[in-house]
Simulated scan of single mutants.
Amino acid sequence: MQGLARFIPTADKIRYLNVLLQVGFDTLDFGSFVSPKAVPQMQDTAEVLAGLDLAGTSTKLLAIVANRRGAEQAVGYEAIRYVGFPLSVSETFQQRNTNRSIAEAITDVAAMQRLCQEADKELVVYLSMGFGNPYGDAYSPALVVDYARQLDELGIRHIVPSDTIGTATPAGIEALFNELADALPFQRFGAHLHARPDETAAKVTAAVQAGVHRLDGAIGGLGGCPMAADTLTGNLPTEAVVGTLQALNVPVTLDLDRLAEAVQLSHEVLG
């Protein structure tokens, strides 16, 4: 929702998220503790959290943060399991996204990891621009592996290379995750991919074939990073991810009726 110009009423967010909580997803990224000036859509995250019905769901909650202050807020809520932070392998994008250098951001990550450990939370680090960037900054799979090693040394167990602008190819996805698996065989990497509608199946297939167990999606493919580009490439459509996994004979233990309800509700709430 973060890139939408119009503010989605808090009650509508709660209604939509409460349906998603009944689908059976492992994790729901429900909101962000970030500057309301930078991302006005997320200014009501605390209110949204208070309205979520967590009874009868095993889905864990994830909140995105952009700095230590946001992490300090997030770990204060018992219901939140995961705290997510975008660490870019592009110096330009790190400055653009969080107004910090990569070196400063890694220092922040170490502090956030300590906060999470003290509060019995888990830190998820997204390696933004993990498949290339449009800014001319140096990029290679080896660079991504280097940052993943640094995160691994900090004890972080959720590392998610992110195709922030949708430039990854299926071959590039498979190659990167294979290289990461060879370098850090005890890590279970996630994938945060963006795609045009006709690209989803191939990108999901490549990730699965490379052993990825955690895939991010958004109903209808809504969204993208408003800090990344003027022309956004959407998130992977959750319903298309599910369809691809079924075609690959990957077990999908979701309530598909609830998923269909969420898809319908997304049209009503989000447009």
Rank of each mutant, 00 (worst) to 15 (best):
I106S: 00
F85E: 02
N97W: 09
R81Q: 13
A105V: 05
Q95P: 00
S90W: 12
R81C: 06
A110L: 02
N99S: 11
T107H: 05
A111I: 04
I80N: 04
Q95E: 10
A105L: 03
V83D: 07
E91K: 08
A103M: 06
N97T: 08
S101I: 03
I102F: 09
R81V: 00
S88D: 10
V89S: 07
R100L: 15
Y82S: 00
T98P: 00
Q117N: 13
S90D: 12
N99K: 08
T98S: 14
Q95F: 10
Q95K: 14
T107R: 07
R114W: 01
E104M: 12
Y82K: 01
S101P: 10
Q95Y: 10
Q113I: 00
E104N: 12
I106R: 13
T107D: 14
S90H: 08
M112C: 02
F93Y: 15
V83A: 05
N99E: 12
R96G: 06
G84W: 03
A111T: 09
I80G: 02
V89Y: 11
F93L: 11
A105E: 08
C116G: 03
L115F: 11
R114K: 13
N99Y: 02
R96N: 05
A110D: 07
A111P: 01
T107P: 00
S88F: 12
P86T: 04
E91Q: 14
L87V: 12
L87F: 14
V89Q: 06
Q94A: 02
G84R: 09
V109H: 10
M112L: 01
A110V: 05
V89E: 13
A110T: 07
C116V: 03
G84D: 14
I106L: 15
R114N: 03
N97S: 04
Q117C: 01
Q113C: 00
T107A: 13
R114L: 12
T98L: 07
Q113P: 04
G84M: 06
Y82H: 11
V109I: 14
Q117M: 04
F93D: 09
R96T: 11
S90L: 12
V109A: 07
R114G: 00
E104D: 15
Q117V: 02
E91N: 06
D108A: 04
F93H: 15
S101G: 09
T92F: 14
E104S: 14
F93W: 14
